[in-house]
């Protein structure tokens, strides 16, 4: 379940990163669409890592160890 949530987050992050690249090509620096897509991408990334830290702290996510 946690893996699914993390992967879903990553897909949305990748989508926004890709959108930023697309707007860089189409708008040629004349609009804020690239900047706004990149703002969404960094915002979601920070949120995801904060959730992962919370998950490890609460014991919901256990970072792998040898032989597990």
């Amino acid at each position: 379940m946690t893996t699914l949530i993390i992967v879903a987050f990553l897909i949305v992050i990748l989508y926004n990163l890709g959108a930023g690249l697309y707007y860089m090509m189409s708008d040629k620096g004349q609009t804020d669409r690239t900047l706004n897509a990149l703002k969404r991408r960094i915002g979601l990334s920070v949120l995801l890592i904060l959730l992962v830290i919370l998950g490890i702290w609460l014991g919901i996510i256990k970072p792998h160890d040898l032989g597990r």
């Binding site: 990553l10 620096g29 990149l38």
Partner: peptide, 27 residues
Amino acid sequence: FGFEAVAWYWHFVDVVWLGLFLFVYVL
């Protein structure tokens, strides 16, 4: 464009690290 391309590249490298941190170190 020079700025935008390099800024975007930095975001890309950052996202690759997110994938690395999650799939190599955590999960």
